[in-house]
């Protein structure tokens, strides 16, 4: 299976280089610190703040994890191998997306120590929002990766790719503010694009099919655009 071959290769490069270890270490350090600070000050057995913090740290780490996915292939000329082999851009992009998603899932699984802790030691802990929150975090991750992957397909310079994906993610994160700025159709349209607002619903325990579909479509659109960019090499 060619998709699996790409996926395996990407996972190998994450762990052959120090990138994955450094991102894992700093993510867990920050999230652990925030969990402790928030719990001690609020004395509330709620994971909502943790979910917000963890996802924002993921947003910051995302460009670093996705920037090299395609940029590096261009820079080191291995793109010539991929594009002259019998493998399609869809397979390349899907394989890379899955590799990165697995990395995120590993990060997310490592945060599960906190809900386990809380459910053991608190007397009124609601697991509902935890399940929906984790679903939201997985969907949010795939949105982050897909936009980052697209950004990475645009340039052979990893810094440029990282900046494009950081800018794009940040913009989608804060689009909701437009609702407060203009109370009209335009403001609401922008607000509907906000990944933050939709993610918040999950943290309150709401699994709205509209939000699920939004994240799935969001992911597909950026992945599709990334395959188009790769295909365009053949007819440009």
């Amino acid at each position: 299976m060619k998709i699996l071959a790409i996926m395996k290769k990407e996972l190998q490069s994450y762990f052959y280089s120090p990138i994955a270890y450094i991102v894992f270490a700093s993510f867990l350090l920050i999230v652990g610190y925030l969990f402790w600070v928030v719990l001690v000050t609020s004395k509330l057995a709620s994971l909502e703040p943790l979910f917000y913090n963890a996802s924002f740290v993921l947003l910051l780490a995302s460009p670093v994890l996705t920037m090299r996915l395609i940029s590096e292939e261009r820079k080191s000329k291995t793109m010539e191998l991929l594009l002259t082999s019998p493998i399609s851009p869809v397979e390349i992009v899907t394989g890379k997306f899955l590799a990165c998603l697995i990395l995120y899932l590993a990060l997310i699984v490592l945060t599960m120590q906190y809900p386990i802790l809380l459910s053991r030691y608190s007397n009124a802990f609601d697991m509902g929002p935890v399940y929906s929150g984790y679903l939201g975090m997985v969907l949010l991750s795939s949105a982050f990766i897909s936009l980052g992957l697209f950004a990475s397909s645009l340039s052979e310079n990893q810094i440029i790719s990282a900046m494009i994906s950081f800018g794009g993610l940040m913009l989608f994160w804060i689009f909701g503010w437009a609702r407060h700025a203009f109370d009209n159709a335009f403001g609401h349209m922008l607000g509907n694009l906000s990944i933050f607002d939709r993610y918040s619903d999950f943290l309150r325990g709401i699994v709205d099919s509209g939000n699920v579909i939004f994240f799935v479509v969001f992911t597909f659109i950026w992945l599709f655009l990334a395959t188009r960019v790769l295909e365009s090499e053949r007819w440009r």
Partner: peptide, 22 residues
């Protein structure tokens, strides 16, 4: 190609295995 399209972080065997797969 002009520049050998290799992934510097891989071993020769894992690289050739990857190429074989694709």
């Amino acid at each position: 190609p002009e520049t050998p399209p290799v992934y510097p972080e891989m071993t020769v065997e894992s690289y050739l295995n990857f190429v074989g797969e694709i």
